[in-house]
Simulated assay, not measured.
Amino acid sequence: MPFTTTKSAFWAGVRDGAPFIAVAGPFALLFGVLAHDAGLSVFEVMSFSIVVIAGAAQFTSLQLMQDEAPTLIVILSALAVNLRVAMYSAALTPYLGRAPLWQRIFAAYLLVDQSYALSHAKFEADPQMSLPQRMAYYFGTCLLVLIMWFACSYVGAAIGTTLPKNLPLDFALPIAFLSMVAPMMRTLPHLIAAAVAIVVSLLAVSIPYSLGLIVAGAAGMMAGAQAEVWLKTQPLAAPQDPKA
């Protein structure tokens, strides 16, 4: 349904983003607990979450720091995990690239998996949206998720040691990514990329500092891109003559 105002587009984004707080909350809570257990202060935990806003990269960095990995490895691993955000940015540029600079700066800061997945799907489904409506919807998708992320990061760091040890908070990470990735598995290249990444990650599990995940991600992207190129070069089947 087309939006009549930017305000209606913003609140539609808020509504669409609301279900993700069910996974963002436990995910952030788990990060706060683990970061506190690793020796970070509440201030350091909050600085980490506010500056980075990248759950997967934060967990990767935290794990590597606990393993006493070299600082360069920590930085490169975090950047590699966040390479997907560069692809998100490229995918959203046709829709948001003409926005004012200050809006694009805030959009880049708030670009997370949920805001990308919801916004890209919405923009494709409703090409009649104006640029202000697109920006409003995008910012709306971020609102509740980021509030929950910051709040639960603080709670996890502040009172994490009092939480039950058997509380299954770690379920949030796989559920969050599955809920975003599964609906996007619509083409053969997507499926090939996922399959190759899974196989390579299992074969590369022994690589130190969890770098096997980076190798698997790169292999999956290359396989998916190559499959897409191959499909584009295949000649289309000639239509059958019903009278033949």
Rank of each mutant, 00 (worst) to 15 (best):
F3N: 08
F3K: 07
S8Y: 10
G13H: 05
R15M: 09
R15V: 15
A22N: 02
F27T: 01
F27Q: 04
V33C: 04
V33T: 12
D37T: 13
L40M: 14
L40W: 08
M46Q: 14
M46K: 11
A56T: 13
Q58V: 06
S61Y: 03
Q66S: 12
D67N: 09
I73Q: 06
V74P: 06
P94L: 02
Y95D: 14
G97K: 10
G97C: 11
R98I: 03
L101T: 14
L101N: 08
R104P: 07
L118R: 13
H120Q: 03
H120Y: 05
S130V: 02
Q133G: 00
R134F: 05
F139Y: 14
F139N: 13
V145L: 15
L146P: 00
I147M: 12
M148G: 09
W149M: 04
W149I: 08
A151V: 11
A158P: 10
I159Q: 11
G160H: 01
L163D: 00
L167T: 06
P168H: 09
D170T: 09
D170R: 10
A172V: 05
L173G: 01
S179C: 15
V181N: 06
P183D: 03
M184W: 03
P189F: 09
P189K: 00
H190R: 03
A193R: 07
A193V: 08
S201D: 11
S201T: 08
L203E: 11
A219Q: 13
G224Y: 09
W230Y: 13
Q234Y: 06
P242Q: 07
K243T: 10
